[in-house]
């Protein structure tokens, strides 16, 4: 699909807690505060995955959340990018090999959609600056989709 440049500067994000301890969620919300103000890049938090271009996911995939994550991912219209925030979502972190965890988000999403576009933001929790940088990387991923990078 051919995307134009306006796409990069109008990313609407939907926030999914996939089993996070709320540490990352607070940092995501902090990125929206006047201090960091992601709206100046056109990034907006929306309430419905149908409106979203970016799914901000935080936390390891717990058994209870797995079907919901799948549903939310499929509800999001293409083209979309998944922003995995925090160590737990990227590697399962301290919950490594826990009985209640299905694994990191990228492994799980690749079972649903092999072509899923993922941006990893490590940190426990990552600073808001890192999350904003991750959103910038999401632009790069979308540029790849355009065939420019």
């Amino acid at each position: 699909m051919k995307l134009n440049k306006n796409f990069d500067r109008a990313l609407w994000a939907f926030h999914v807690n996939t089993g996070s301890c709320n540490g990352c969620d607070i940092e995501i919300v902090a990125a929206l505060t006047p201090r960091y103000d992601v709206e100046r890049f056109g990034i907006k938090l929306v309430g419905s995955p149908r409106h979203a271009d970016v799914l901000i996911m935080a936390g390891p995939v717990t058994r209870a959340m797995a079907p919901r994550i799948k549903r939310i991912y499929n509800q999001t219209p293409d083209p979309k990018v998944v922003l995995v925030v925090g160590n737990c979502g990227n590697t399962t972190g301290v919950y490594y090999e826990s009985y209640n965890i299905l694994g990191p988000i990228d492994h799980f999403l690749k079972q649903i959609d092999p072509d899923v576009k993922i941006v990893h933001i490590p940190g426990c929790p990552p600073r808001p600056e890192a999350i904003i940088e991750g959103a910038a990387k999401a632009w790069l991923v979308l540029e790849e989709l355009r065939g420019e990078a």
Partner: peptide, 19 residues
Amino acid sequence: RIGPPLRQPFRDISKLMQK
């Protein structure tokens, strides 16, 4: 806050049309 640029709604429309 600084806020989005004035042409942000046009970008939003342009983006939504590609979705």
